[in-house]
Design a binder for these strands. Structure first.
Lengths: 233, 233
DNA sequence: CTGGTTTCTTGACCTAGATCAAGGTAGACA
DNA sequence: TGTCTACCTTGATCTAGGTCAAGAAACCAG
């Protein structure tokens, strides 16, 4: 990699806070790579060979059962970290939902570098703790929420996470954004079928809480009612 | 705390690997505390004041909705770490499922100590990554598995985690153990009602895969069929 | 613009698991 | 030793969301 100091996620990714010379060493370990929508960069069950920072684009983290049932267990945005450091096999796949740009490291090189740079491990720890909080929040959704509560929660979550993407939170995106997932993927994330997702979205649209000008585009009209719905019923 | 070097979880908790003098400093920051079954040590939404190592006993990590629906998002065993370091509010509660013994630290003192001891933060990172893997595995269960698959998965998970508790994996416990959860708690962990849990357990018993000599005790008769069931159907 | 493909929506029907409602049963305590 | 109480099991019924089956939009290539 030529110059990490110019990286667009420089101040938000786990490499933020490294000293200039440390950053240069890390930069030499990594390489930028473009991946296309649909391309898988980490395979469930395979040896965990790479880790990466997301520079641009959105990716899904998913696990599946032998008979093909799939659950999306995470959605990853620019400046987020992907891959499973310090472990032989990756328990999940990582697949691009949009065209994306990654900053890839071999896992072994990253593991060694991380152990030598406590500041980096600290950043990674904080991120992993946040990811764990999000995973647990999603367990509450999957275990206890109704279909309409799930859809409302998803729309709000996507809204906030997409709007946090820019250098500063981007209020223009907050109530008007493109979903990076199709209906099937929304189902796989929420533990619902594609038909239930479609019906519930239509219902929210009819109730005036949202607009759906086309397949991917979402406009939130009544954020408050939507978040009431997300929390209880 | 008098003497960490005598601690029963000494070699498995995150404090393993600290130098004797570091361990002594950490020991002075912590105190042992007994908690009774049912007692809550961390409250959801409250400021995160303490973290702890579990010395003895089993605890649940849970999140709930405003209307009282509760999801258990984690079960914690001896040598595991509890609490949310590096964050103001705890997103979940932690409650003892059995009488337990903890080694408690104020969060602020622990945070400072951890930042000064990369080896400790590394251990904590590894544990958090494992906890995240488990949470995601559970998301697959909650999003995609049938009731019988969920029960089978739970029994196997409890079997392995309880048997790993001793200094060495304890094969006697593997197929014969006491569930630290009652039926309601099993339901809250699996996203099922108490009645469904009861019916599915009875079904597994009738099929001869397990025995249930009393409320809490479980004997696994046919581990292979149980794990076939846990994975697919 | 047109025909083909993919994705999404809608409708009709079905089922796994929830809900409601009695009973059992095992500890606990007098 | 009885009876209280907190769990647990079982049965009957209901329903949210799944499944199956058409269409309808959007998207794309020529």
């Amino acid at each position: 990699m030529k110059d990490c100091s110019q990286c667009v996620v420089r101040n938000r990714a786990i490499c933020a806070g490294l000293l200039p010379d440390e950053l240069e060493v890390l930069g030499r370990l990594g390489r930028k790579q473009l991946v296309q929508r649909g391309q898988t960069v980490v395979w469930e069950g395979e040896e965990s060979l790479i880790v990466a920072n997301v520079i641009e684009g959105v990716l899904k983290v998913s696990m599946s059962m032998t008979d093909g049932r799939e659950q999306i267990v995470g959605v990853v945005f620019p400046s987020d970290f992907i891959g499973r450091p310090f472990g032989k096999a990756s328990p999940y796949s990582v697949t691009a939902l949009t065209d994306a740009e990654l900053c890839i490291f071999t896992r072994s090189a990253f593991d060694i570098f991380a152990r030598e740079h406590p500041e980096l491990e600290h950043k990674l720890l904080r991120r992993t703790l946040e990811e764990l909080d999000r995973a647990r929040e999603w367990m509450l959704l999957l275990g206890k929420k109704s279909a309409s509560e799930r859809i409302a929660t998803l729309l709000l979550e996507m809204s906030t996470r997409l709007s946090e993407q820019g250098c500063h939170a981007n209020p223009a995106v907050l109530n008007r954004f493109d979903l990076p997932l199709d209906r099937q993927q929304i189902g796989d994330l929420l533990g619902l079928t594609i038909e239930t997702v479609s019906r519930q979205m239509t219902k929210l649209k009819s109730a005036g809480l949202i607009d759906l000008p086309d397949r991917k585009h979402v406009i939130i009209n009544d954020r408050m009612r939507l978040s009431d719905l997300a929390m209880a019923a």
